[in-house]
């Protein structure tokens, strides 16, 4: 199951998140939803526009870093927020991520906007499997 929680007592001025999933796809989905929850109430973001992403990385942690960085980049370049993530991750020589992500253009009058996210940091960054669940921890620069 996709889950995430905001960690109150880490990195005072920024936002620390722990996300969990039974699979890597769920973990990446939960991490993406958590990142957009910082910026907007994602319940109010309709899945109107589709974007397709392909990423490749040697390590699973750098893949997560690249995935979140790509979403933050798209938010600024496309002026979009996203709320629905269909992800496939394959492990070959490298990890390959293919995703269809759904959202809509930012509308300050319709969306409940929160704080902008500047970047994903490597501070306390971790991706690991604990008791059969994938767990990640990351800090977003606000």
């Amino acid at each position: 199951m996709e889950e995430f929680e905001f960690l109150d007592d880490i990195a005072t001025a920024d936002v620390a998140i722990e996300s969990r999933g039974d699979t890597l796809e769920e973990l990446f989905g939960a991490s993406a939803t958590a990142t957009f929850e910082v910026m907007v109430n994602t319940k109010g973001v309709k899945p109107r526009i589709k974007k397709v992403l392909c990423l490749e990385s040697q390590e699973i942690d750098t893949l997560l870093f690249d995935w979140l960085s790509e979403l933050i980049y798209l938010k600024d370049v496309e002026y979009m927020v996203f709320s629905d993530f269909h992800i496939q991750i394959q492990k070959d020589a490298n990890y390959l991520l293919q995703a269809q992500i759904f959202g809509e253009e930012i509308c300050p009058t319709r969306h409940e906007l929160r704080c902008d996210v500047k970047a994903v940091t490597y501070h306390l960054f971790d991706v690991s499997k604990k008791k059969g669940k994938w767990v990640s921890r990351f800090v977003l620069d606000i």
């Binding site: 500047k118 940091t121 490597y122």
Partner: peptide, 16 residues
């Protein structure tokens, strides 16, 4: 703004 944020992200990745 996003220009600096992206330069920071790009080079953090390189330095890592």
């Amino acid at each position: 703004r996003g220009f600096g944020h992206q330069i920071g992200t790009d080079y953090l990745r390189i330095f890592d």
